[in-house]
Design a protein around this nucleic acid. Structure first.
Lengths: 228, 228
DNA sequence: ACTGGATTGTGTAATTTATACACTAAGTAG
DNA sequence: CTACTTAGTGTATAAATTACACAATCCAGT
């Protein structure tokens, strides 16, 4: 193994590098996160966010994509870096530094599956988490904060919704993430004024009531804008 | 060296872990950053931000503090994590992952010195950087963005100023970082209204003109608040 | 002692943005 | 045709932001 050297020419040992990924979705009007159950070892049967070690000469983003694909059957989602956690005690097996990523998905468009790597995989409510391995509870809390603030000043909600959606659905996503109710008229006024969304000609009718207009996001790429 | 293992029990190689630190200050009404000149090796005489490898069983923050103290004579400053850069090609000598931190200082309270580790150390204008080693130009740009937005929604400007300062000095700091002029009356009204600062009984007189009241920050700990 | 130069310090009106709030419209089921 | 359910809409008030110009204080120089 090739080591980096310091200025005195001595080899140095540095921690292992891992990536861990928070995958959020809003399901049944609740903010959920995709968790896996660990197969064996010191953390057997504890829940955790999916992750793994980074290979040398592999970028962090590539490592995150590879691990999600290999271990959770999840492909082609947009990942954003959250933060890096490096406390020497965060993993009792030895010092590793975890670069956390977060992603938002619409659960209808996306099918995680258990693999040989994990004992189980499931969506869990973010506000009623099971006992978590490592420092993953802390990472999730941090990610939730980030998600809340990004929802307020960017258009990333698009990643949580299907292409077409009603304004009621959009509002529910905001309410689930922010944990508070919003005023219907002001919300609808705002998202149209700032051109976050635009109306289609299509409508959707679910029950015995007035059909709802379907909307699409004006842009489906990350963009900074004041929503709330 | 102890290796982490994957689920098949095979040892894996992960990149080396480094920390690099952006130290910003406003000097002569210009946003500056503390850079060092590399002594030897592939990047000899290139400028870079101070940094170094993290030891196993050392936290990232501790590593950053240690390195700043050892290599730049800088102690006791508040560090905040910025982001992590892990492109395999970012360092031509081998794959390393850099966790970047950033700090704000008042240059009057603080004396960086050249050490055996570096060929030189100096404050450089952020908008006219010399040729930088590694991906440090990119890291600095990213840090500058973060600084600009943090200045607008937190009280961290306190770290750039001495205990007592005039409102003109405070405004200059904002203008230097944001790169635009602000309205004097609105600025002064705002910072007092939101209790970012409070007036002291002291004044300072520099030239042949009206003396300026001295102010202090209401809190000198990081706090989220809308400034602009 | 008076004047000129330099920097500090201050208020108000106009505009924009945010908030609070309740009923009608459209459809289906019975 | 009535009852039910969800969708959809406007206005008045309050709050925040913006634009803008001159008087106050001090010293230096004559």
């Amino acid at each position: 193994m090739k080591h980096k050297t310091n200025n005195l020419g001595e080899p140095k040992k540095t921690p292992a590098v891992a990536v861990d990924t928070l995958i959020f979705s809003v399901i049944d009007n609740k903010l959920k996160i995709l968790l896996i159950k660990i197969l064996g070892g010191a953390y057997k049967n504890k829940w955790a966010i999916p992750g793994g070690l980074v290979d040398t000469n592999e970028s962090l983003e590539k490592a995150a994509s590879r691990i999600l694909s290999q271990k959770a059957g999840v492909d082609g989602i947009y990942l954003e870096q959250l933060a890096t956690f490096g406390d020497p005690k965060r993993d009792s097996r030895g010092h590793s530094v975890s670069v956390a990523y977060f992603a938002l998905v619409n659960d209808k468009l996306f099918y995680p599956k258990t693999t040989e790597y994990y004992a189980d995989i499931a969506w869990k409510n973010v506000d009623t988490l099971p006992t978590m391995a490592f420092d993953h509870k802390k990472i999730i809390e941090y990610g939730k904060e980030r998600l809340m603030s990004k929802l307020a000043y960017s258009n990333i909600a698009y990643a949580l919704l299907p292409k077409e959606f009603t304004l009621t659905e959009l509002q529910s996503v905001y309410e689930a993430v922010l944990g508070k109710v919003l005023d219907k008229r002001n919300f609808r006024k705002k998202v149209q004024e700032i051109k976050l969304v635009k109306e289609t000609t299509r409508t959707r009718q679910l029950g015995a009531n007035r059909p709802a207009k379907l909307f699409i996001f004006t842009q489906r790429h990350p963009r900074i804008m004041d929503i709330l």
